[in-house]
């Protein structure tokens, strides 16, 4: 499997979101996309699986341009796990995961699909929830159900938009480790958007660091996660230490004043009509 992105650009009307993205992703591996809010991480993965069509440049999946795939072929190739669920009329967990079989099955879901769904639920340790209704579950369980649905697609490439954002630290590690193992044992390319630098550093084979709609750096965690890069991209001072062979980031609280959200030294009384200036 291979994803080649050449000079990719995307914009909503006139506002450019992605500029000049060039990436060549190969082989089963676990890739994390890191970067501050609003740099176009989600937009980037949406350009890979036909949710959005790029304004310029090309995206090739296994040598074929994305726009030439039918939706169904794309769904067999690339699985997608969204950030939040939009399920407005909730189904049972089994039926929700069963949806992931849609690109493969014909009208009626057959016995084999149910067995596959069971196997996935078992691997995610959630068979006890199989018959529950989706809306009765916690936010973390929702994410695992959606992950299960993505896995049920049996894709060669799995895209995940912050799959661990609602999970506690233990479950974040569990899910991330599972995704890494999945990519290594099942031969899937897993691309995940993440905000947790340490967890990404621990489990990722590669990291894509994004800034302002461009790829700032790509490489192994050790190559990408440097004090300089973190400062450039996030504007945060940090110290990187290496333990167990993985880089760990330690954050320092001395962000330059002009970038802080709320400056207490700033007078709150600057407007002429609020009355506070008189006193």
């Amino acid at each position: 499997m291979r994803i080649e992105i050449k000079d990719l650009g995307f914009g909503y009307s006139d506002i450019p979101v992605l500029k000049n993205i060039n990436l060549d992703l190969n082989n089963p591996q676990f890739i994390s996309i890191l970067g501050p809010n609003g740099v176009g991480k989600s937009t980037l993965i949406h350009c890979l699986n036909k949710i959005l069509s790029p304004s310029s440049g090309t995206v090739l999946v296994d040598g074929k341009e994305v726009s030439e795939y039918t939706l169904k072929d794309m769904a067999k190739k690339i699985g997608y796990v969204p950030y939040t669920s939009g399920d407005s009329f909730p189904l049972s967990v089994i039926d929700t995961v069963l949806m992931g079989r849609h690109p493969h099955s014909n009208r009626r879901s057959n016995e084999a699909d149910l067995e596959k769904v069971y196997e996935i639920l078992r691997k995610l340790k959630m068979t006890h929830l199989a018959l529950r209704s989706f809306d009765e579950l916690s936010a973390g369980q929702h994410q695992k159900v959606m992950l299960a649905r993505g896995l049920a697609q049996e894709p060669e490439i799995l895209l995940l938009d912050e799959p661990t954002s609602n999970l506690d630290i233990r479950h974040q590690m569990d899910v991330t480790r599972m995704l890494r193992n999945l990519s290594h044992t099942q031969g899937i390319m897993v691309i995940m958007i993440s905000h947790d630098i340490n967890i990404a550093a621990r489990y990722s084979d590669s990291i894509i660091l994004m800034k302002d709609g461009t790829v700032f750096d790509v490489g192994t965690p050790e190559e990408v996660l440097t004090e300089g890069n973190i400062m450039e991209v996030y504007g945060v001072e940090s110290r990187i230490i290496t333990e167990d062979g993985h880089p760990h980031i330690i954050l320092k609280d001395n962000i330059p004043d002009e970038e802080t959200l709320w400056d207490p030294s700033e007078s709150s009384c600057t407007m002429p009509n609020t009355g506070c200036l008189k006193g």
Binding site: D73, K76, G79, F89, L91, M99, R107
Partner: peptide
């Protein structure tokens, strides 16, 4: 009724249905 399954997928939201192969 033949489109019941598609309707399920549609109600799961546009992104999901697109990535599950439904136009």
């Amino acid at each position: 009724s033949m489109m019941g399954k598609q309707l399920n997928i549609l109600s799961a939201g546009d992104k999901i249905s697109t990535t599950l192969g439904v136009d």
